[in-house]
Design a protein around this nucleic acid. Structure first.
Length: 255
DNA sequence: ATGGCCTCGGTTCGAGGA
């Protein structure tokens, strides 16, 4: 079972790349973030034609999430229950007994921004919800763009980034709090090459110079992490013409 | 060399991303 996540930064622009990637990588489940599409404009037919069922929750211009699956999806949940949020950032479904949560965590902009306060509130609500989900579902995979680099290993230049949004202590503490509920960062279950990242700025030739951050993650509950055979970052789509600034992360589970 | 981009909406610039 291959579970993947990819922030596509506009599905309208990236649809051909997503279809191509589905065909070359054959994930069982793919979580997308930043689709930036109203539901009425979602390209469901192209995705069905590629052999995937899909659920989506979008809005104009910003945010938007979708889950693509080759197998039947059930128990759909939109948003964090009890957390009033206009922004479309969460979708959850159950696939073959595995709770799949697709998350687009707020960016936060900067530590002094109102958006940073929203990010921390959002993460608190998210964490509380994940705790209750764990009580209902032993097998949970939380895939998405967390907009948090958990450790200095996940930052190309920790000194330059010190204290900035995406790497601040408060954000890392929120990430650790989620792990403490009983999740593993699947990427760190395995030996990985140094300087592995999932996002690179469009500017400054950042990808060519590998000036990146690892901010997209697949978190697995204990019942799944014990079955995880590998987790990898696929750099290929970041080399495409007109790439997303993020690239996919794939976790493979024993079937 | 300390700044360099991309997407969207809606018009040719501002907001937002990370």
């Amino acid at each position: 079972m291959k579970l993947a996540t990819w922030n596509v930064n506009s599905l309208k622009v990236r649809l051909p790349q997503v279809i191509e990637w589905l065909q070359s990588s054959e994930p069982d489940v793919l979580c997308l973030q930043e689709t930036k599409l109203l539901d009425e404009n979602f390209p469901h037919e192209a995705i069905h034609s590629a052999g995937y069922d899909v659920v989506y929750s979008g809005q104009k211009t910003y945010n938007g999430v979708a889950i693509l699956s080759r197998k039947q999806m059930a128990e759909r949940q939109d948003g964090i229950p009890g957390f009033d949020d206009e922004q479309k950032r969460i979708l959850a479904v159950t696939v073959e007994g595995i709770r799949i949560i697709c998350a687009y965590v707020p960016n936060g902009e900067s530590l002094s921004s109102e958006k940073f306060i929203y990010k921390l509130k959002w993460l608190d609500a998210f964490s509380n919800w994940l705790k209750s989900e764990l009580e209902r579902y032993p097998k949970i995979a939380v895939l998405g763009d967390y907009n948090i680099a958990p450790d200095d290993r996940d930052v190309h230049d920790p000194k330059a980034w010190e204290g900035s949004v995406l790497v601040s202590n408060e954000e890392r503490e929120a990430f650790r709090k989620i792990l403490a509920l009983g999740f593993s960062d699947s990427f760190r279950l395995f030996d990985q090459v140094e300087k592995s990242y999932t996002w690179w700025d469009y500017r400054m030739n950042a990808f060519r110079r590998n000036m990146g951050l690892r901010i997209d993650h697949v978190l697995l509950s204990e019942a799944l992490s014990s079955k995880c055979k590998g987790c990898s970052i696929d750099l290929a789509p970041r080399k495409n013409e007109r790439p997303s600034d993020h690239t996919p992360v794939i976790a493979t589970l024993e079937s």
